[in-house]
Each structure stands twice: as structure tokens, then as C-alpha cells.
């Protein structure tokens, strides 16, 4: 079966399931919202402080709700031995990986798109001025998150304690990504036109995120054969 078609078939299956049940995006969204509300009580921050810690809070929320989505990605395939069926299909294992990455990235990005305006209203931060930059950073961050996260999720799906092991393994690996997204977003959220120095910083983070995403997608594509072996 050709490359794009095999990916699309798995992706379509996941999208259809989600469209019919809407359970994943709904719970990820509410969970992310809750994290922000709790942080609001924990910090009681004024506007200046929010500019400093806001992007961090936002990405803590995305990280937590994203790991819910990742846990779901393979847990759902374990039910009724769906994973066995997928492995028996004449599809390259790496393509299963790519389809799962695209699926979880779409779900997580939708949640982020819903969260950004709410965050902006609740904390009174204007995100309109640098919206393209923010969308780009969040996109790159989400791709990297799901690229590493899907691999780790497939690994931990094979263990007892899977819900526990996913964040324990995943979060340290994601620290570079987390720093990059938070630093770049906080430069963007300062508002106004960016100075040339800020643009340089932003570009550097974009570069490192693209490097991170590319490397881990390629390595995981290759390595995935070894996770789904019997």
C-alpha cells in the first residue's frame, strides 16, 4: 500500500472515532482549562507577572492535557487487540507511527487553539499582534511533543503502570522543547512590534525546535519497528 494512503487510513480511523465520541478533545480541553484556573489561585499574579509566567502556565496546561491524549493514543488500540490487527495489516510500522503523530498533533493543536483566546481573555493579555508567531511556535512545539510522545506512549503502553510511566519518561525528554516554546512565546506576548534582538532570539528558538522535531520524527520512524514487534 502506498505511503500516504496507509497513513491516511489510520488517521481517518482515529479522526472518525474522535468525531463520533468527542471524548478526547473534550476532556483534554477541560483539563487544560482546570490547570490554568488552579494556577490562577496559586499565583494571584498582576499583569507584569502574568507576562513573565503566563506562557509557562499555558504550556504546563498543554503538556498535562497532551499527555492525556498520548496515553489514549495507544491505550485505545490495546482494547479488543486492535493493535494486533493494525500490525497484521500490510502497512509499514513507521507509517502507523506517523499517522498517530499526525492524529495526536491535530487533537492537541485544536485544544491549544481553543485555549489561546480563553487564556488571553482571562489574563488580559493581547495575543492578536503576534498571533502568527504564536501559532507557529505552538505548532512546532506540538509536533515535537507528539513526535517524542507517541514513541514513549507506545513504549509505556507495554508496561504495567502505563499512565504513570508516560510522564516520568516523557517530561525530562521534552525540557528543551518546553524551554524553547515558553521563551519564544513570552517574547511574543510582550506585545508590540518585536525589536531586532527579540527577532533574533525568536529565530534561534524556531531553529532549535525544527531541529528537535525533524530529528525525533526520523529516529522514531525507524525505531518504531522495534516497539511493535512480537
Amino acid at each position: 500500500m502506498d505511503f500516504f494512503r496507509s497513513i491516511w487510513i489510520i488517521l481517518e480511523k482515529d479522526l472518525t472515532t474522535e468525531l463520533r465520541t468527542k471524548e478526547l478533545i473534550g476532556s483534554m480541553f477541560i483539563f487544560a482549562l482546570l490547570v490554568i484556573v488552579i494556577f490562577n489561585f496559586a499565583f494571584e499574579a498582576g499583569r507584569d507577572e502574568i507576562l513573565l509566567i503566563g506562557p509557562g502556565i499555558l504550556w504546563v496546561a498543554f503538556t498535562f492535557s497532551g499527555s492525556l491524549g498520548l496515553n489514549h493514543a495507544f491505550a485505545v488500540e490495546k482494547e479488543n487487540n486492535c493493535l494486533q490487527g493494525m500490525m497484521l495489516a500490510p502497512i509499514d510500522r513507521g507509517n502507523i507511527y506517523l499517522a498517530k503523530v499526525i492524529g495526536t498533533t491535530i487533537f492537541m493543536y485544536i485544544v491549544e487553539l481553543m485555549m489561546l483566546p480563553i487564556f488571553s481573555i482571562l489574563f488580559n493579555i493581547s495575543i492578536i499582534e503576534n498571533l502568527p508567531g504564536l501559532l507557529l511556535m505552538n505548532g512546532l512545539g506540538t509536533i515535537g511533543f507528539c513526535a517524542v510522545g507517541t514513541t514513549v506512549s507506545a513504549v509505556t503502553a507495554n508496561t504495567k503502570m502505563r499512565e504513570m510511566m508516560l510522564p516520568i519518561i516523557l517530561f525530562p525528554l521534552l525540557i528543551p522543547l518546553f524551554i524553547g516554546v515558553v521563551e519564544a512565546s513570552s517574547a511574543l506576548m510582550q506585545g508590540g512590534v518585536m525589536q531586532s534582538e527579540e527577532i533574533g532570539v525568536f529565530r534561534n528558538w524556531v531553529k532549535i525546535l525544527i531541529g528537535f522535531d525533524t530529528l525525533f520524527i526520523i529516529v522514531s520512524y525507524w525505531i518504531f519497528n522495534y516497539i511493535l514487534e512480537e
Binding site: P176, I179, E183, I208, V219
Partner: peptide, 19 residues
């Protein structure tokens, strides 16, 4: 798999934390 991914992550961890 974690041993490989973890080690490949090291340069990213170091550079990002330094910046």
C-alpha cells in the same frame, strides 16, 4: 529505545538550557 532517544536529547537539553 529510551536509551537511544534519551542520549540524542542530550545536546538539545544542553543548548536550550544554556540559551
Amino acid at each position: 529505545i529510551i536509551g537511544i532517544i534519551g542520549f540524542l536529547d542530550v545536546p538539545f537539553i544542553y543548548i536550550s538550557i544554556r540559551w
